[in-house]
Simulated assay, not measured.
Amino acid sequence: MQPFNTQFTLSRDFLAECFDQSLPYGKNVKPNYLFPILLLSSGAGLLLFIEQPKIAGCTLIALGVLELIHIRFRRAWWLARQMLGKSAGSEVKLTIDKDGIQTQNPYTITALLWTDIERIIETDLGLILVAKSGGQQYLSKSLLPAELIDEIVTKIKGKH
Rank of each mutant, 00 (worst) to 15 (best):
T108W: 03
I109Y: 04
T110L: 08
A111F: 06
A111M: 04
L112P: 06
L112K: 14
L113F: 12
L113N: 13
W114H: 12
W114R: 08
T115S: 14
T115D: 14
D116F: 03
I117M: 04
I117Y: 01
E118D: 15
R119L: 08
R119Y: 09
I120S: 12
I120K: 08
I120A: 03
I120F: 01
I121R: 10
I121Y: 05
E122F: 00
E122M: 03
E122Q: 14
E122I: 00
T123N: 08
T123W: 06
D124N: 10
D124H: 12
D124A: 12
L125E: 13
L125D: 04
L127T: 02
L127D: 07
L127S: 05
L127W: 00
I128R: 06
I128W: 01
I128V: 07
I128S: 07
I128G: 08
I128Y: 00
L129H: 03
L129G: 04
L129D: 04
V130D: 02
V130R: 14
V130L: 13
A131N: 09
A131M: 02
S133R: 12
S133C: 03
S133D: 15
G134M: 06
G135I: 00
G135D: 09
G135R: 11
G135S: 15
Q136L: 05
Q136G: 14
Q137A: 10
Q137G: 09
Y138C: 08
Y138F: 15
Y138H: 04
Y138T: 07
L139S: 10
L139T: 12
L139D: 11
L139Y: 07
S140L: 01
K141Y: 09
K141V: 03
K141R: 09
S142F: 01
